[in-house]
Each structure stands twice: as C-alpha cells, then as structure tokens.
C-alpha cells in the first residue's frame, strides 16, 4: 500500500458515499445516470468475486464489501425507492454498446484464460467506460448539480491517483499490470474535459454547465 493508492481508495469511497447521500438527502436521483450505476455495480461484483476466497487484508475485504453494498443501495434508490425522480429521457446511452465489446475484449486480451481472470479483466475494461452514460447524460441536459460534479471529480480523481500508484509500484516494487494501467489511462482521459469544466467553473462557485 502507498499513499497514492490510499488517497485514491478514499477518494473513490468519498465519491460513492457522496452520490448515495445526495440521492438520499434530496430524495431525488435527478441528473444521475442509473445506467452508469448499474455498470459500476457490475464492475464491483465481477471484480470482487474473490471476496470470500482470497483474503488479502482487513482493509481490502472491508472496502470491497462497502463498494458492493453502496453500489447496490444506490441502484435500489434509483430504480425503486426514488424511481419517480429517475430521468430516463436523458439517460439513454445504450449500455449494450459498452458491455458487449468490453466482454469480447476481456476474452481476447487477458493475463490468464480462466473464469476469475476473465471476469476481473471484464471488470477492469468495463470500469474504464462505465462513466460514459453519466457524462453523456450531462451533455444532454447541459448541466449537472454541484453535488453531482463533486461526485464525478472524486470518482475521476481516484483512478488518476491509481495511475500515480502504478508508477510508484513500477519503480519501487517492480510491479506493473498493463491491462489495469491502459484501462486506467483510458478511464482518466474520459474525465479530462469534465475536469477542465470542474476546475474552471465549480471551483469558482459557478454551476457546472456545458457551453450550449
């Protein structure tokens, strides 16, 4: 464990708790893409299948359990409890356009052709594009609530910090995982224009609105 990965994990935890809190407090999931949340749920379930078989540390197990639980709770709030506030007209990104190619790629490019490894690879690839429906929804509505933009900033920062963690581990531990690194870079690049908008607008107290 290194500081970059720890801060990254905490930023990730903050992001998903922020989103859950926003939906619960405002009793509304307006502006939140349910499709992205379903894909994140899929990401955690397929990645943490080893939750009970492969004990690494208390921290690792606890965080995995929290991520899965919060993801399921968020999906429940969006599609059941506050279903009436779900903006399905703007959440129109076709998930199958992401899940099918990612599933195919996981079969073709992986470290080991075993079920667990392919599911882990699928999870890594899917996570890199899972935010697209959310970013697409914001581009359609032309704006995002401030709390939602904080959620996205924390979520985007987590993987950017993981890239720094991978550089650190490469030089100090001789560890590198090309699949995770490439997917992590793609994931972070997808946030770039949002990061620009966030820094130039939200940090100056303005609402996040895309140039019409």
């Amino acid at each position: 464990m290194n500081i970059f990965r720890l801060v990254g994990d905490l930023s990730h935890l903050l992001a998903i708790l922020l989103l859950l809190w926003k939906i619960w407090k405002t009793r509304s999931c307006a502006g939140v893409s349910g499709k992205s949340q379903i894909m994140f749920g899929l990401v955690y379930i397929t990645r943490y299948l080893d939750l009970f078989t492969n004990f690494i540390s208390i921290y690792n197990t606890t965080m995995k359990a929290i991520f899965i639980a919060v993801a399921i709770a968020t999906i429940y709030l969006i599609y059941f409890k506050f279903k009436a506030t779900y903006d399905s007209n703007h959440d129109t990104f076709r998930m199958e356009f992401l899940i099918v190619p990612v599933g195919g790629l996981a079969f073709l490019v992986n470290h080991d052709f075993t079920a667990l490894e392919i599911l882990w690879t699928f999870s890594i690839y899917l996570e890199s594009v899972a935010i697209l429906p959310q970013l697409f929804m914001i581009s359609k509505t032309g704006e995002a609530e401030t709390i939602t933009s904080h959620y996205l900033f924390a979520l985007g920062s987590y993987r950017a910090l993981y890239i720094v963690n991978w550089v650190y581990r490469y030089y100090f531990e001789g560890f590198f995982d090309l699949i995770a690194i490439v997917a992590g870079c793609v994931q972070t690049i997808l946030y770039c224009d949002f990061f620009y908008l966030y820094v130039t607008k939200v940090m100056h107290g303005k609402k996040l609105s895309l140039p019409a």
């Binding site: 990730h12 690792n60 470290h111 995982d177 090309l178």
Partner: peptide, 10 residues
Amino acid sequence: LQKGATKDEL
C-alpha cells in the same frame, strides 16, 4: 518485473 497476478488492489 512481475506482471498482473497479485490482485491486491481494489
């Protein structure tokens, strides 16, 4: 250099 393998990351 060790590739992939250790899934100690979240």
